[in-house]
Design a protein around this nucleic acid. Structure first.
Lengths: 148, 148
DNA sequence: GCTTGACCTCAAGTCGACTTGAATTCGTAC
DNA sequence: GTACGAATTCAAGTCGACTTGAGGTCAAGC
């Protein structure tokens, strides 16, 4: 078993030490023990951090992600729940696709004002019908760099 | 010109009055005048709110969205910025797709632990290679309902 | 004239995901 | 044995996008 110092984990994963401590605090990851004060992690934590990052990228909250690991720290999610999430991702993708199409159209549309472009209005209406508009769903995170 | 009371705007748009006040405060929308204390809005504000909601869904911040309207209140967005955002959405979609595939695989994989499943590891590596993992980009917003 | 209810203002609170800072404690190298 | 550097704890701060609450105001209907 590979054992890594917190600093090493931070460096290899790109996740700040403060973040690692925070993750430990909320029970998302666990350290093996201390060497003096320093946390030491099982090398597997790197894979787990990848999974966490992926979950975040997919729009899951840390709490939700935490729920995806069993008590032994291994991924452990009821299979139908997984499928459900996959389907939800599918839906999110569809929304993003619609949105992307709108943006692309607006970018290329020669009409002086978008409000006067029939295609734009049509796309907007389609978006509204799909409830895309009033359901806050996706947000870029602040311009904060975790990696140095 | 249609004139709407703030309450009506709220009801028709699904945006809470407090939010409308907040938007006015930060200069995102403007009211015409007051009737007594009450703000009155031009009916056009509804379309503008749709655009705002769409911008949010696309991952723009309110500040960025505010910058997308000319001083006359009409949409006015640099086209290449739009294309850039569309491309970013595209990347987001790719991330979601990868994640969806992973979830689906995990849901169907017969291996006792995913960490031991070669397919899983392969998918994870693919995800990592695509920089999916360390670029924080998308987040679902909290479970807060703006509409009543 | 009085009540009612929808609106008002302003300050403060919330939420998630971290970061920052001050004061402290180690292991290691010299 | 002491200095150094990296890590520690704990409380508090930050950011965006709002919401909440207390206390005040107004137009319309009776």
């Amino acid at each position: 078993m590979v054992v890594l110092d917190i600093g090493e984990v931070a460096e290899r994963s790109g996740v700040a030490p403060s973040t690692l401590r925070y993750y430990e605090e909320i029970g998302l990851i666990a350290s093996l023990w201390r060497r003096g004060l320093r946390r030491q992690f099982d090398g597997d934590v790197l894979l787990k951090l990848s999974l966490i990052a992926m979950g975040k990228a997919a729009g899951f909250s840390l709490e939700e992600i935490a729920g995806m690991f069993g008590r032994d720290g291994r991924p452990d999610i009821p299979r139908d729940q997984l499928r459900e999430r996959a389907d939800e991702l599918q839906r999110q993708m569809a929304e993003l696709r619609t949105l992307r199409d709108i943006l692309r159209h607006v970018a290329d549309c020669p009409a002086p004002s978008h409000l006067e472009c029939p295609t734009f209005r049509k796309l907007m209406q389609a978006a509204s019908r799909r409830k895309l508009v009033y359901r806050p769903s996706v947000r870029r995170s602040g311009a904060r760099r975790t990696a140095p």
